[in-house]
Design a protein around this nucleic acid. Sequence first.
DNA 1: CAGGAATTAGCC
DNA 2: GCTAATTCCTGA
Length: 712
Amino acid sequence: MSLFADIVFALPLPQAYTYAVPGEWTAAARPGTRVRASLGPKTAIGIIVRVHDQPPAGTFIKPILAVLDPEPIIPPDILDLAGRLSRRYYSSWGELLRAAVPPALSGASSMKAALTEAGRAALAAGSLAGEEAKVAALLAEKRMSPSYLKRKSVVSGGAAVLARLVRKGLAETRTVEKKVKPRAAQAAPAVAVQMDLDFAGDEAVARAAKGVAVAAAEGRFLSRLFFGPPARRASAYLACARDVLLRGRQVLFLYPEIGMSAAVAGAFVAGLGERVVLLHSRLTPRERLLARRRAESLESAVVAGPRSALFTPLPRLGLIIVDEESDDSYLQTENPVYDARSGARMRAEAASVPLIFGSETPTAEAFERARRDGGMFAMPASEPPVQAILLDDRTERGLLAAPLRERLADILAARKRAILFALRRGYAAFLLCPRCGHVPRCPRCDIALTLHQKNRRLACRYCSEEQPAPGSCPRCGGRIWEPRGAGVEAVAEELQKTLPAARIEVFDRERVRTRAAQAKVLARFAGGAIDVLVATPLLAHQPGVPAASLIGVLNPEQGLGQSDFRAGQRTYAEIRRFLRFLDGSDPRAAAVLQTAVPDHPVLTAAAAGDYAKFFGVEIEYRRMLGYPPFTAMAEVALWGRDVKGLERTAQDLASRLRAAGISEVLGPAEARSGGARGVQLVAKAADASVLDNVLGVVLPLVKGRKTVTRFD
DNA sequence: CAGGAATTAGCC
DNA sequence: GCTAATTCCTGA
């Protein structure tokens, strides 16, 4: 009987390929082992995902060249998890596995170029032209890959020049296969479980923890939402985790990339000490590998990390916790697209372990689900939520409303700290006519043109459109312009004018680039060397931000304007996150939301910290417009240069989707991501399986580069 | 209409 | 991702 293996590669390929397994490899070829196989004109390293005896019809079958590991490097559950995620998010199984096991799949063969004898002679004789001479000189030093050559050489078309040299017989290329180290055998250190922690939790925490502990002990999937402030969640997590650890099982704890949750992770470290393995993003690849091995081998441990920690192999997994469930960083939006929250659910279900989502500002999807299936555990804060004052700035001149300026002056007089949050970087203001409401827009892209204060010009963020800022409103002739939606630089500049003595610092990615610089600014702010920080949301993701006596949020309604059904969600969560920095110990501390839409329900709810009110509004909006969780939804973006052609393709895709039974297809609309242009469709269906079945059939029929993001 | 640059299809 | 095939583009 002949054997076949389905293999995936860390490339954007839509499916696995089937190879023949030669007799000598039949014992070694197991799912989860790496293999070298020929792929097109070269060889690549892939991972076996299935071994079977059904010869595929029609295609020519190549054999596996070698099995590289004596033992699988990826356990079956992780292999399967990546497979299921790749199917749900239409991303490559192999690319997901590379995200899961970074070093394993990166080594393949590489091409190296070098000069031939003739090439050396020609170079020495000086008979080569400008570009060719430059490239040849580089190659004379050592062999290098074409991409390295391209980076190193100042020549624009480095690859083309190399190709020319090869054709003339002056250079040659050869493929060098990278060596792959087989995985070293690991000894599992036997550590006695010795845990005597005291968690004098309160009633709500104890009740929440108990249900989880029972399910964990019975080996049963269960989904819970711990709805409450960080400190309460942390003690509930600890109570659950302790129980699981005492049974000699492992806990997977996911937290957002950076920031607030560090405090919760810190509580774990403080409470559980060396049983906590932190897989944070600053580890070097080798450190990460070692941390993973340690996590895998510890009999009982908490493994804490961001999104990618979802894939940590844990043979004795007993509980999964996803903290700050509403954080965007759980959704990886570039290839391979996947959502670690869905992934956590898949993994918990497959492993039959409880799953806890935790947040003070949960997504409407999670809240609705928990409400429906009784998984909700509310842990109200012991203190009432921070209340923010809503300031209407429609009649204000300038960027800062007068009452906010006055408060800032008071704060400075009292020698206290203040933080102002603005959503944009740099200057980035747009112009608004206060008389008729006209906003100058890009004639091509229809987005508000950005005002550049320095030269008083208007420019488009997307295209090259640029024009002088008009002196009067082209629509109504009004003479006065109001700059609106200003970036942090503009805010800081204006503030400095009104409060000349204030020590103001801008905190955004442009001004404060490195982590060290960020920490330095925060230390100065904490030490009293800075009075006011004018910051983008970047600040809210930093560890070690000191509390301030005044928190001002400038025009958060800009976030509501995004064409994204989760804009309200994100805005609510973001505002509440900003308000966490308010110094509760200062009786005169105040928070202010300055906005042009002071009656907007998302803003009034956020100002009051009233999640129930926010949820009521949000879920109704989702219901009315047919967004998740009431429908399953997918965004399909097609990318390319020829927008007209893409539009035709999108129309074709839309009609195919409709023909296949998708009732609601929106678009095509323009899509942009950085410099790339494209068109985008939104498909919605009442039933997730209908949507997935149709997409599975229709998407492969559409050619070209595309990204699919799936929501439900 | 050559010849090269740019884009795209296929990889089992 | 890389390569080969293809289309696109430039310049006579």
